[in-house]
């Protein structure tokens, strides 16, 4: 039997009180197994980002249990040695006062004992090559000197540097061009196949999720309304929300909205 990476039972997360009370994650039960790519798909405000933050240990459940490898998340640093994240907006993710390279190296800060300087440099070089960037291309460069696509690759390079066991990818493709998107997905697949990483991919585009995932979780208003293998979910969707998400994609081969 495969190990469970995340295991949530009747998990609830709410914010605020009184008039401002809202439940972002509402009684969710699921598990994610070792080596899977699971996509959380839903529109804005469906609770997928809050769930992602729970996986990173940044939020604790209000009620219910949320376990990582069978235990609740207590020590953040220990957790982040194994679970890392790629964020949505690559431009705001780096400190503009330091070179890209030094910031990729700074990722080693999460380790209890840093490898030797030589090994760190080598691992950064290898990580850059893994995302098809020659180390010389970013040598001495600052974040604002790179394009959006390049920056998103740098975030992925950081993951290649750290090689965590689990990656939470929070809408890594929503701020980049359609043509860079295919690239990002390739690298996610590479992380899975070469480093056998478990990946949680968060997106509002079911089309993207379909390409990379082993399983899809469709979320709506804090609940998982449907889950299953991508073929099954996309070809015979059971929830109206899944149908909605599928219909909303402007696919070239399908009727979308008719102009009067």
């Amino acid at each position: 039997m495969q190990n469970k990476i995340f295991d949530a039972v009747n998990c609830v997360r709410s914010f605020g009180h009184g008039k401002k009370f809202m439940t972002a994650v509402d009684d969710i039960t699921f598990d994610i197994k070792d080596g899977e790519i699971v996509s959380l798909v839903g529109g804005s405000g469906c609770g997928k980002s809050v769930l992602a933050k729970m996986m990173l240990g940044l939020y604790k459940p209000t009620s219910g249990t949320f376990l990582y490898r069978g235990k609740p998340i207590t020590d953040h640093k220990a957790h982040w040695r194994e679970v890392q994240s790629v964020f949505q907006d690559p431009f705001s993710c780096f400190n503009q006062f330091f070179t890209i390279r030094s910031q990729l190296k700074a990722a080693f800060g999460i380790y209890k004992e840093k490898p030797s300087d030589k090994e760190m440099e080598e691992r950064v070089d290898r990580a850059l090559l893994a995302v098809n960037v020659k180390p010389s291309e970013v040598e001495g460069k600052y974040p604002f000197e790179l394009s959006g696509g390049q920056m998103q690759r740098m975030l992925l390079a950081r993951i290649f540097v750290l090689r965590p066991q689990v990656l939470i990818a929070d809408e890594p493709t929503s701020m980049v061009d359609a043509c860079v998107r295919a690239n990002i997905l390739d690298y996610l697949m590479k992380l899975k196949h070469e480093l056998s990483m478990t990946i949680v991919f968060i997106t509002h585009d079911i089309g993207l999720a379909y390409y990379v995932s082993d399983r899809l979780f469709i979320m709506h208003k804090g609940k998982i309304v449907e889950q299953g293998p991508p073929e099954e979910v996309t070809t015979s969707p059971k929830s109206e929300h899944t149908v909605q998400l599928l219909e909303d994609i402007p696919d070239v081969n399908r009727e979308w909205i008719k102009r009067a």
Partner: peptide, 21 residues
């Protein structure tokens, strides 16, 4: 900002985040 979240994921402590980020 996101770069602060990333610094945390890099294991940076509060003082370092204040002074560097």
């Amino acid at each position: 900002k996101d770069h602060i979240s990333l610094a945390r994921l890099n294991g940076d402590g509060g003082i370092r985040i204040l002074l560097v980020h």
